[in-house]
Design a protein around this nucleic acid. Structure first.
Lengths: 228, 228
DNA sequence: GCTATAATCGAACGGCGATTTAATTCTATC
DNA sequence: GATAGAATTAAATCGCCGTTCGATTATAGC
């Protein structure tokens, strides 16, 4: 009957951050409400004051992560004073730095989407009809936004191809390759590793830009051709 | 007390294939022994005749998938009559075709490694001390083999750089990018999609090869530089 | 201070899933 | 055709997890 004497009021955002972190380590199914609650000094029951269910909590985590990522990338896409290659380079680098910096949200984006799709909820159980409808709606909105996110990269690639700056490639597949490489960073990157986040970002961005440029670029590339 | 009149004797391999398939759809934690058993017309209890535990089952799935992949790639690495670019191209394409063809094993490789690491087993519970030791040992062997797999790609990149065929890049990071892009195929690829597995494989392989080649390649690239 | 509301808690409920057990059926071999 | 071992099963165990509920405490506005 007693209650924790600690400071009250853990806000929604703190819970979401903690959840993202636990989720990255354990995955949705293996993560218990107790785990998440413990990270913010609460009990599992308390979480239900902030979120309707575990599914809604996962959904919220993914939503803020995705919106954050889109918000950072969109301005870069529209920096029309820069050539496509430079815009794309910055987009890739920006996102990778973000993923390396906050692997929680990044990795969650990779791994937990399947859990979201398989979310086994039905109007029965506790959930209200309205709650069920809300979940379905928000989940579909999320997938639409994910397509938007991917579209940011696809757009700039197409633009570069049309302007002749990039060689003609299948923009869809190249985009998928980028997504995979970028997402994967959240899985293997460790802050204690050989390279920093920005360093990794630069190398990867360079790799993809190089794969898109024509064989005869305008500015001479600074590079030795041969060395033992 | 009765028993299924169906054909008896479901062999180990059939179970592993079924498990890989269910695993890809649901993930390790969300997959029940009952799910796997149902795919091969058995009950959950029957699986324990073939595997010591769910953890061992997962481990076995990953082991065969990885060995299969390595076996297909190793010959290509050692085809020294071909230039590095061609060898790498074939390695990438081969693996992507494999992943697209058998998304089960491919996706499992991506997703379930975390479950493997977090496998919450201890000598207590049912597990024997010996069983526990065996699991730990096999798991570490698996991770070593995974490094070998990744090393196949890293090696050929380094070789190409040393021979001057590839431009100097950070082989480690480029390899990670390849791993991410390749693994990701198992997540988004659908046989009913716009492109076939081999088509996807060719485009992706081309993308990465292009990112490695020097600006002045020996054979003239066949490509229009500009088009409206 | 009083009251409404927000935030939290302990405890209990209900279900499900991994695993065990003991029994049953198949299959091959002698 | 008896027997041993392999393969399978139903049923029970045991623990955990999501969720609910009623009660308790903090906080803010009056």
């Amino acid at each position: 009957m007693a209650r924790k004497p600690a400071d009250q009021s853990v806000n929604r955002e703190a819970i979401l951050l903690a959840a993202a972190d636990v989720l990255r380590q354990n995955g949705y199914e293996a993560t218990t409400m107790k785990d998440i609650a413990a990270r913010v000094g609460l009990t599992a029951a308390s979480l239900y004051h902030h979120f309707k269910s575990k599914d809604f909590l996962l959904l919220s985590v993914l939503e803020i992560g995705l919106e954050h990522a889109i918000a950072r990338l969109e301005p870069l896409l529209h920096a029309t004073d820069l050539p496509c290659s430079e815009r794309l380079r910055r987009m890739i680098a920006t996102h990778i730095i973000e993923v390396a910096d906050n692997t929680a949200v990044g990795a969650a984006m990779v791994f937990e989407i399947r859990s979201l799709m398989n979310a086994k909820l039905s109007p029965r159980n506790g959930l209200t009809e309205a709650d069920y409808a809300e979940f379905i709606e928000r989940r579909e909105a999320f997938f639409r936004r994910r397509d938007v996110f991917e579209g940011l990269f696809k757009q700039i690639i197409r633009q570069g191809i049309n302007s002749g700056e990039f060689r003609p490639v299948d923009a869809g597949i190249v985009t998928k390759a980028m997504m995979g490489a970028q997402n994967w960073v959240g899985v293997w990157y460790k802050p204690t590793g050989r390279l920093s986040g920005p360093q990794v970002a630069e190398i990867m961005a360079d790799t993809f830009i190089h794969s898109l440029l024509n064989a005869t670029p305008q500015p001479a590339p600074r590079q030795e051709t041969s060395h033992i």
